[in-house]
Simulated assay, not measured.
Amino acid sequence: MAYFEQTGEHTFRATEHVGGAWEAGTQHIAPALGLLVHAVETDRDTRRGDRPEDRLRVSRLSFDILGTVPVAEVDVAVRVLRPGRTVELVEATLVHAGRAVVVLRAWLLQPRDTGALQGTGLAAVPGPEEHEPWDPTTVWPGGFIASVEVRRRQVAPGRATFWVRTPVPLVADREVSRLAATAGLLDIANGMTVLADPRTVAFPNVDLTAHLVAEPRGAWVGFDTAVTFGADGLGLTHSVVHDETGPIGTSSQSLTVRPGAGL
């Protein structure tokens, strides 16, 4: 069973594997973010064709999470805000029962050969085989958390490196890119090295922004993650994102920290 089953041209039914961590019966938003990226890429390929030389690459994914969504059928709508031959800004919206739940704005850029300039100041992390298996269901409930495999090195509360993969397809019986599948795992970072016990403190994220410099390769997604809580109820989960070749970008989540409102 996949995270979503396509029921119409723009409609998808969530399955039990998207069950949320904070509230029973609501979706963990991670797979929905991947679904929106899949919709953006499908729209791009429909408009531009599937020739590699015409395919713009996703550079930034900026998701605003407007509320919770039940484990139910959702609609996805895509529109181009800034068309262009070399640069485009595309918006995708996840809707349930007429209400927008998540809005994605994605920058797509024309690829060029910059192999001679390639380099990074971001540090690589050891691969998944050098991390110990860790069971996230010891901290979190929900179908999505139960569907993933995690290997982790915990440095301190709120600080860890870890690798995540899932055997569950994003959309049943549909070809999905490695980027969309990876985007469907990014939101998990906020719960993999907690700074506070989620049974006593809630810290859901209201957004996620990822900047990418390469298309991900392989099933494993690596994270070098640090969590910060401020003194006034604001928080941040920041990650350097990896595949097994090295760092491929960053991801940040803005948190609303709520003592006394845990699981």
Score class of each variant (00 low, 15 high):
Ala160Val: 01
Ala226Trp: 05
Glu244Ser: 06
Asp232Lys: 04
Thr7Val: 10
His10Ile: 11
Val74Gly: 10
Thr200Ser: 12
Asp50Phe: 14
Ile248Cys: 04
Ala116Lys: 13
Val103Tyr: 10
Gly235Asn: 00
Gly233Lys: 04
Thr26Asn: 05
Pro31Met: 07
Pro204Ile: 05
Arg82Val: 11
Asp43Asn: 15
Leu104Asp: 07
Ala106Leu: 03
Arg13Ser: 08
Val74Ala: 07
Thr161His: 09
Thr245Glu: 07
Gln27Arg: 07
Val148Pro: 06
Asp54Asn: 14
Pro141Ser: 06
Ala30Met: 05
Asp113Phe: 09
Glu53Ile: 11
Thr237Lys: 03
Asp232Gly: 01
Leu108Trp: 15
Ile145Leu: 09
Leu236Glu: 01
Leu81Thr: 07
Arg112Cys: 15
Ser62Glu: 09
Thr193Arg: 01
Ala116Arg: 15
Thr200Gln: 15
Gly184Asp: 13
Pro128Asn: 14
His10Lys: 14
Gly19Asp: 10
Gly49Cys: 12
Leu94Val: 12
Thr237Arg: 03
Gln110Cys: 06
Pro70Trp: 11
Leu33Arg: 05
Arg178Tyr: 06
Pro70Lys: 14
Asp135Arg: 10
Glu53Lys: 12
Trp134Ser: 07
Val194Trp: 01
Asn205Val: 02
Asp197Ile: 08
Arg258Val: 03
Val90Arg: 02
Ser252Ala: 13
Pro133Ala: 00
Thr7Phe: 13
Phe12Met: 11
Pro52Glu: 10
Glu132Ala: 13
Arg55Asn: 04
Val240Lys: 02
Val227Arg: 01
Asp54Ile: 14
His242Lys: 10
Arg152Phe: 10
Val213Ile: 14
Trp140Asn: 08
Ala106Gly: 04
Pro216Ser: 09
Val95Lys: 12
Ala146Pro: 13
His238Ala: 00
Val80Leu: 10
Ala39Cys: 05
Glu215Ala: 13
Ile145Trp: 09
Ala92Cys: 06
Ala231Gln: 02
Gly262Trp: 08
Arg13Cys: 10
Ile248Ala: 05
Ala202Asn: 07
Arg13Tyr: 09
Val58Thr: 15
Phe4Val: 02
Leu117Gln: 07
Glu23Trp: 13
Glu5Met: 11
Arg159Thr: 03
Ala160Gln: 00
Leu109Ala: 07
Met192Trp: 09
Leu81Gln: 08
Ala24Arg: 14
